[in-house]
Amino acid sequence: MNNKSKYSYIGIAFIILVFGIIFIPKIVDRIKHDDISRSERMSTEQDNNFSDQSKLAFIEINGEPKKVPSFSFENQNGEMITEKDYLGKVYVIEFFFTTCPTICPKMTYNLVQVQNAFKSFEEFGVASFTINPDHDTPEVLKSYAEEYGVTNPNWNLMTGNKEDIYNLANLGFNLFVDVENFEHSGNFALIDKNGYIRSRTDAYGNPIIYYRGTVSEKEQVNEEGEKEEISMLKEDIKKLLNE
Rank of each mutant, 00 (worst) to 15 (best):
T130L: 02
A13F: 11
L168I: 08
E60T: 12
I15P: 00
S216F: 05
K26G: 00
F188L: 07
R200P: 01
E223Q: 09
P65C: 04
M158R: 01
N174S: 12
N206I: 13
V68L: 14
I59K: 06
S37L: 10
L233S: 14
S143N: 11
T108I: 13
L141S: 07
H33G: 06
V221L: 01
L241D: 10
F19L: 06
Q220F: 04
E74F: 06
Y91F: 15
S120P: 02
S43V: 05
K67G: 02
Y166L: 11
E139K: 14
V179A: 13
E235Y: 15
N116E: 15
Y9G: 03
S39F: 08
K84R: 11
L190D: 14
N110Q: 06
I165E: 02
H33K: 12
N75K: 04
V215L: 06
E40C: 01
N75C: 09
I15T: 08
I197K: 07
K6N: 13
F96E: 07
V126G: 06
M158W: 06
V112L: 10
V90P: 11
I15G: 02
L171M: 07
E228Q: 09
P105S: 03
N132Y: 12
E223W: 00
P153V: 03
G20D: 01
N194K: 08
G63A: 04
E217C: 12
Y204V: 08
N187M: 13
L168W: 03
T137P: 08
G172S: 07
N152H: 09
F95C: 04
P101Q: 05
P105T: 03
L157F: 15
K238E: 02
V140Q: 13
P25K: 09
A117N: 14
Q53V: 13
K119F: 07
E163M: 11
G225H: 00
E74I: 15
K89D: 09
Y91E: 15
L17H: 02
K238R: 15
E229K: 12
V177D: 01
V28D: 07
A127F: 02
F97A: 11
E163R: 09
R38I: 11
K84A: 12
N77V: 02
D202F: 08
V221G: 00
T130Y: 02
N3G: 04
L141E: 00
Y210F: 15
Q113I: 05
F173N: 05
P133D: 05
K239P: 09
P105Y: 04
T108R: 10
Y166K: 09
S70K: 06
E180V: 09
A127E: 02
E122L: 05
N132R: 12
S128E: 04
I131W: 01
Q76K: 14
F188P: 09
A13S: 13
E60W: 02
Y204F: 12
G225K: 00
D236F: 03
E60Q: 11
T159K: 15
